[in-house]
Protein backbone atom coordinates (compact mmCIF):
# COMPACT_ATOMS: atom_id res chain seq x y z
CA UNK A 1 0.00 0.00 0.00
CA UNK A 2 1.24 3.48 -0.79
CA UNK A 3 2.27 5.59 2.15
CA UNK A 4 3.31 9.18 2.64
CA UNK A 5 6.77 9.08 4.23
CA UNK A 6 7.86 11.93 6.45
CA UNK A 7 10.36 12.61 9.18
CA UNK A 8 10.55 13.90 12.69
CA UNK A 9 14.23 14.86 12.85
CA UNK A 10 15.94 11.74 11.44
CA UNK A 11 13.20 9.27 12.35
CA UNK A 12 10.99 8.15 9.45
CA UNK A 13 7.23 7.73 9.69
CA UNK A 14 4.54 6.69 7.26
CA UNK A 15 0.79 7.19 6.88
CA UNK A 16 -1.42 5.48 4.29
CA UNK A 17 -1.83 7.78 1.30
CA UNK A 18 -5.59 7.45 1.62
CA UNK A 19 -5.45 9.01 5.09
CA UNK A 20 -3.59 12.12 3.94
CA UNK A 21 -5.42 14.97 2.25
CA UNK A 22 -2.40 17.10 1.40
CA UNK A 23 0.93 18.39 2.58
CA UNK A 24 1.39 22.12 3.08
CA UNK A 25 4.04 24.54 4.25
CA UNK A 26 3.23 25.90 7.71
CA UNK A 27 2.11 29.54 7.82
CA UNK A 28 4.41 32.27 9.13
CA UNK A 29 2.41 32.25 12.35
CA UNK A 30 -0.18 30.01 13.88
CA UNK A 31 -3.11 31.32 15.86
CA UNK A 32 -2.55 30.20 19.38
CA UNK A 33 -5.24 28.03 20.93
CA UNK A 34 -5.91 29.29 24.45
CA UNK A 35 -5.53 26.70 27.19
CA UNK A 36 -4.62 24.00 24.73
CA UNK A 37 -2.08 21.33 25.64
CA UNK A 38 1.50 22.20 24.62
CA UNK A 39 1.55 19.71 21.73
CA UNK A 40 -1.02 21.84 19.94
CA UNK A 41 0.93 24.27 17.79
CA UNK A 42 -2.15 26.28 16.97
CA UNK A 43 -4.69 26.66 14.22
CA UNK A 44 -4.14 27.74 10.65
CA UNK A 45 -6.37 28.93 7.87
CA UNK A 46 -6.33 26.58 4.95
CA UNK A 47 -8.46 28.08 2.20
CA UNK A 48 -11.16 29.13 4.61
CA UNK A 49 -10.97 26.08 6.84
CA UNK A 50 -9.61 26.21 10.34
CA UNK A 51 -7.13 23.40 10.80
CA UNK A 52 -5.83 22.36 14.20
CA UNK A 53 -2.13 21.58 13.97
CA UNK A 54 -0.39 19.28 16.42
CA UNK A 55 3.34 18.80 16.64
CA UNK A 56 3.96 15.12 15.97
CA UNK A 57 7.17 15.16 18.00
CA UNK A 58 5.27 16.11 21.14
CA UNK A 59 2.34 13.87 20.37
CA UNK A 60 4.68 10.88 20.22
CA UNK A 61 6.72 12.09 23.21
CA UNK A 62 9.94 12.35 21.21
CA UNK A 63 12.88 14.42 22.42
CA UNK A 64 13.34 17.95 21.12
CA UNK A 65 15.69 18.32 18.14
CA UNK A 66 17.50 21.11 16.33
CA UNK A 67 15.53 21.20 13.04
CA UNK A 68 12.50 23.51 12.75
CA UNK A 69 9.42 21.69 11.41
CA UNK A 70 8.89 22.54 7.76
CA UNK A 71 5.73 20.71 6.70
CA UNK A 72 2.17 20.09 7.81
CA UNK A 73 0.66 16.74 6.87
CA UNK A 74 -3.11 17.21 6.72
CA UNK A 75 -5.12 14.17 7.65
CA UNK A 76 -8.26 13.36 5.75
CA UNK A 77 -10.77 13.13 8.58
CA UNK A 78 -13.96 14.19 6.86
CA UNK A 79 -14.83 17.71 7.93
CA UNK A 80 -12.64 17.51 10.99
CA UNK A 81 -9.43 19.23 10.17
CA UNK A 82 -6.25 18.01 11.77
CA UNK A 83 -2.68 18.63 10.69
CA UNK A 84 0.57 17.04 11.87
CA UNK A 85 3.58 19.32 12.09
CA UNK A 86 6.65 17.33 10.95
CA UNK A 87 10.27 18.05 10.12
CA UNK A 88 9.95 17.25 6.43
CA UNK A 89 8.18 15.03 3.93
CA UNK A 90 10.22 12.56 1.89
CA UNK A 91 7.64 11.38 -0.59
CA UNK A 92 5.25 8.57 -1.38
CA UNK A 93 6.45 4.98 -1.18
CA UNK A 94 4.91 1.56 -1.26
CA UNK A 95 5.13 0.00 2.16
CA UNK A 96 4.53 -3.71 2.52
CA UNK A 97 4.83 -6.18 5.35
CA UNK A 98 4.21 -4.11 8.40
CA UNK A 99 5.29 -5.93 11.55
CA UNK A 100 4.46 -5.15 15.12
CA UNK A 101 6.63 -2.46 16.59
CA UNK A 102 8.99 -3.62 19.33
CA UNK A 103 8.50 -2.25 22.80
CA UNK A 104 5.45 -0.48 24.11
CA UNK A 105 2.44 -0.54 21.85
CA UNK A 106 0.55 2.72 21.39
CA UNK A 107 -2.65 3.09 19.41
CA UNK A 108 -1.06 5.77 17.24
CA UNK A 109 1.53 3.29 15.93
CA UNK A 110 0.44 0.51 13.64
CA UNK A 111 3.82 -1.13 13.29
CA UNK A 112 7.20 -0.96 11.60
CA UNK A 113 8.34 -1.77 8.08
CA UNK A 114 11.54 -1.68 6.11
CA UNK A 115 11.95 0.69 3.24
CA UNK A 116 15.17 0.87 1.24
CA UNK A 117 17.00 -0.88 4.02
CA UNK A 118 15.84 1.62 6.60
CA UNK A 119 13.12 1.33 9.21
CA UNK A 120 9.81 3.22 8.95
CA UNK A 121 7.30 3.56 11.74
CA UNK A 122 3.82 3.23 10.24
CA UNK A 123 1.22 5.35 12.01
CA UNK A 124 -2.44 4.60 12.49
CA UNK A 125 -4.73 7.54 11.54
CA UNK A 126 -7.51 6.55 13.98
CA UNK A 127 -4.98 6.16 16.77
CA UNK A 128 -3.44 9.56 16.03
CA UNK A 129 -6.86 11.11 16.17
CA UNK A 130 -7.58 9.43 19.48
CA UNK A 131 -4.20 10.49 20.86
CA UNK A 132 -4.94 14.12 20.00
CA UNK A 133 -8.36 13.98 21.62
CA UNK A 134 -6.78 12.34 24.66
CA UNK A 135 -4.49 15.36 25.05
CA UNK A 136 -7.58 17.46 25.62
CA UNK A 137 -9.22 15.16 28.09
CA UNK A 138 -7.35 15.47 31.36
CA UNK A 139 -6.74 12.14 33.02
CA UNK A 140 -8.11 12.13 36.52
Amino acid sequence: MRHVIFRVEKERYGLPLSAVREVVVPPARFTLVPRAPPAITGVMNLRGRVVTVVELRQLLNLPEGPTPPARVVLLDRGRRDLGLLVTDVDGIEAVERISTAPGRVTPAVRGVARLGGLGVTVLEPEGLDAAVVALFTPSK
Binding site: V33, A36, L135
Partner: peptide, 10 residues
Protein backbone atom coordinates in the same frame (compact mmCIF):
# COMPACT_ATOMS: atom_id res chain seq x y z
CA UNK B 1 -14.55 20.89 15.51
CA UNK B 2 -13.00 18.19 17.62
CA UNK B 3 -10.72 18.49 19.54
CA UNK B 4 -11.17 22.25 19.96
CA UNK B 5 -14.72 21.85 21.19
CA UNK B 6 -13.33 20.11 24.26
CA UNK B 7 -11.74 23.34 25.47
CA UNK B 8 -13.82 25.34 27.92
CA UNK B 9 -14.21 29.03 27.26
CA UNK B 10 -14.24 29.03 23.45
Amino acid sequence: SRPLDLLPGL
